[in-house]
Design a protein around this nucleic acid. Sequence first.
RNA 1: GCGCCUGUAGCUCAUUUGGAUAGAGCAUCGGAUUUCUAAUCCGAGGGUAGUAGGUUCGAAUCCUACCAGGCGCGCCA
Length: 570
Amino acid sequence: MKNIIKDLIRKSLYKINKDKSILIENIEVNLCKDKKFGDFSSNIAMKYSNQYKTNPKDLAKEIIKGIEKNENIVKVEIAGPGFINFFVSKGSQFSVITQILNEKNLFGKNEIGANLNVLIEFVSANPTGPLHVGHGRGAAYGDCLSNLFKESGYNVSKEYYVNDAGKQIDILTLSVLQRYHQLIDESINLDYEDLYKGDYVWDIAAEVHRNNNTKFFIKDLNNLYNSDLDTYILNVKNNLSQEKFKKIKSTSVDFILDNIKKTLNISGVDFDSWFSESTLVTNNDLKDIINYLNKNNFTYEKDKALWFKSMDLGDEKDRVLVKENKDHTYLSTDIAYHNNKIKRKFDHVINIWGADHHGYIPRINGAFNIFSKGKSKLTILLVQFANLYRGKDKVSMSTRSGEFVTLEQLLKEVGKDATRFFYLARKADQHMDFDIELAKSNNSNNPVYYVQYAHARICSIFKQSKENNMDFKFNKKFLELLAEEEELNIVKKLSYYPEVIKKSALRYEPHLLTNYMKELAQEIHSYYNKSQILVEDEELRNARLSLIEACRYVFLNSSKIIGISMPEKM
RNA sequence: GCGCCUGUAGCUCAUUUGGAUAGAGCAUCGGAUUUCUAAUCCGAGGGUAGUAGGUUCGAAUCCUACCAGGCGCGCCA
């Protein structure tokens, strides 16, 4: 309908002045909030009155004069400072019900991403501990975005980048070794700063011990200690042997990854691929990009380290790729990783990061452009951390100290549906406060129940209709009988649905969809309280059933995208 | 100090990328079930959109300055 109106305006404008014709993309038509302004309105006259050297109202009059007759449009009028308001015929409004009942699960799909491959990388938490509530937000966001892209026709691959190389993992390994030693000999006291202290470290140590007994025991572990962590790690590696250290390392990483996968599974998030950082080192991808950068003058040596000239690419300073001790930095493998993404020929590469990584964007963007040469587009989306509260007390979150609420705990306390909906109900780049007490103590406060209840009510009506031999029969002609204000509101809302999907996908904003669901639910609850659906009049009854059946499909389709269940009974 | 993000009702957030009278939920107060589920509905109160300027037909939205908060500024990841 919107497009029909846009086209009518375009044609009218063309009549007025052929030379200055305006592209259809520049014509805005919006749904009206207030029905006294009609169904759709356009601001075109106000926007372009300057260009046409006239005032908005006169231009609006001219445009209206030139608008062709159309069976769907009942009335066109000027209002306010120059809005052109369109009143649409009932029949054309109700056609969306027929459309939904025909398309069913396909209603809302669009093709803006047809033939485009998109890679969306998210969560990618270091395998040094369980996922916490911050990761949960990124997980829900990335997963929902993927669904929105799929609904919009893209080929989507979801990937988790596993940082299984580097210093943090060595520190984890060391932490496990310490606990392992303490398990064997309680008199050993090895509580050093900078090591991971969560209970899960004990669990890993116990598993190592169960499977290997004292195989990894170092008698004088205490003597290997050095306040410089790198030295300490090196000492342990040399004493234990590189191979044994690696064994503990992979056991630890596997243990934690299993736990992460389990938690994601509970969240309803699954990945198409798990990309291991260490493979970039073993398969020469890392060497290749460093050679390439060297050859093409993107690097230099200083203080025995190799530097990346990221300043030339918009970063605030240059960054180290290879450290003085010849270890590679996280950045260097990350560049190799992004080059790998480009080699896999994705049209669009999307990264979802925690907002604390925002300073990292310029250097990755710069590197990405070097390798993609315009063939692939990179978008980095930031997710703000969720501040967790227990009542009024802010819960401090530190992976190191082990004092944090895990995502698994949150899911257990609040439930998958509520957790996902809550995470997605606000803009990703907005800070959010999550009060566990509130979420726990009063479930009805949670909007997800409100939406689910609306759906359950619809299902209940259909159940009732069958029990009373009032089986639903669809007939397009009956729709004309819908005349209640609530019915018209709902129909309008339904026609807006495909646009919400498009908009949420293009703007990376799933909260638009959760908002929409809340609004539709609200319309339905109002309607339900005001009007009886299962009335004696068979035609009116079926018209009303058609309407709520259409709503039911929209709830089903949208809940699938958000990743929550839609129970038929509550 | 520099950079990025944010500031909307007592609280948590929206506001369809610049539109018409800034809206919901929670909380407070008052109403609604002999009728499809009261996890619901209807109504009331509650606002200098951080502050001050600017841009234009029109600003919560864009620009500038200031104020407040968050994050970042490693040869950590």
